[in-house]
Design a protein around this nucleic acid. Structure first.
Lengths: 224, 224
DNA sequence: CATCACGAAATTGTATACAAGGGCTTTGAC
DNA sequence: GTCAAAGCCCTTGTATACAATTTCGTGATG
């Protein structure tokens, strides 16, 4: 999409900070100095403050009163909990999509699956990662519940950075793709229970793989 | 709870506006003038703006660029969708609570049920409404997933104003209470499926009753 | 030598001042 | 008489200035 020329400053700043936090460029617990950010972006403190407040709303940033803004520390436990909720929302979306099974969203879903297959064949993990996101969004959009779709996208977005890590696991892409195929055929066939079950499994596996990965890396972390 | 003396202005303003919107004192679509609010609260525009932005994050207020803030118009369709998601989250919380079934949260849940019974006997709809909220929060807290609990509370809060309406329906309180009893016994017995099923039904009924009520009242509304 | 208190510096929170953008009204032309 | 365009006014968006609170440093005292 084209970059809107009249986009407000706080929007641009929010996106920039969001990116930095999600990519891990900004370490959890790091303090975000308003003045420093202002001079870095070449603006005053006002839009920076507004951007930080928006990030607080998305739980990426924590705001201690009269202390400043800090990159929020997300514990392993909380991440596992988030994946658990994500699995439930995805399963619900899949069930509803199977129940409705309207032609147009279904066609988009199958197109997204094909795109995943292409990306998988090319062996490009980043490409598969991108197509994977679009595939899941296609499921949300097919569920016929716009509110559920927006909530699912919100949570998906929050888990984005973490989800990316576990695609590095060998053979995970092929396995993920096989699961995608099962999901699509269940939805297309209108099999609610199968769609729900397969999607729940799909996300739960991601969560477990991720938890294993993180706990093996961050073993040094103190138990909070 | 005691009012914290050092509470920031934007917090107080946010709560005040939130209250006014949820109680319907502020009509949907109504414009919220920054300057007017500032002079009304005896502060400058800055904290008012920050409060409005926070309300945007909770979807209570819509912000049209360079146009100002408006009380968000929630369509009947969107409300039905929100109740559908609420039902799923509550069902999930109930299932997890039944699975874990730890003594302390269970005791709090049973206490909340007793409080509902007392309020129902007194015939005070508002009191039952308040205890009902606490009962549902007790379920969230018993699920052992803090993230799910916070998300459920957030959505519960957003549906608060609408939920309140349909308690006016005669005999609904007694029926609600009976459903609560079924839910608690299922959770206490560790029957995951029963807890999930009863909670889903409980919320779905609320949603349907509410939809009936609204559509009978707002029949004049133009289809958007 | 440690601990507590006072003070100064720095940072957030709020107020005010300025700029920019959009809507509404009025006026002119067809 | 109607439609369109331009200008004024009001509003939001941003910058700067001020106030209040917190933290860290320094010194004095037990």
């Amino acid at each position: 999409m084209a970059t809107r020329k009249s986009e407000h400053l706080r929007g641009a700043i929010r996106e920039a900070l969001e990116q930095e936090i999600l990519t891990g460029e900004r370490q959890p617990g790091e303090r975000l100095d308003e003045q420093a950010l202002a001079s870095r972006f070449g603006v005053s403190r006002t839009p920076v403050r507004e951007a930080l407040h928006q990030l607080v709303a998305t739980s990426l940033v924590e705001l201690r009163p009269n202390r400043g803004a800090f990159v929020r520390q997300v514990s392993l436990r909380e991440l596992v909990e988030m994946f658990e909720v994500m699995a439930e929302l995805e399963a619900m979306a899949g069930r509803l999509a199977a129940r409705r099974a309207e032609p147009a969203p279904l066609a988009r879903l199958e197109a997204a699956l094909k795109a995943c297959e292409s990306a998988a064949q090319s062996g490009d993990a980043d490409a598969y990662y991108a197509e994977n996101s679009l595939f899941h969004e296609a499921i949300y959009d097919a569920c016929g519940n716009a509110f559920l779709a927006s909530e699912a996208k919100r949570l998906h977005q929050r888990l984005k950075a973490y989800r990316r890590l576990q695609l590095r696991v060998p053979k995970r892409i092929g396995q993920s793709l096989a699961e995608h195929r099962l999901i699509v055929s269940a939805i297309a066939a209108g099999e609610e229970k199968a769609a729900e079950r397969e999607l729940r499994k799909h996300i739960t596996i991601q969560g477990e793989r991720f938890a294993d990965f993180v706990s093996s890396v961050q073993r040094r972390d103190a138990a909070e």
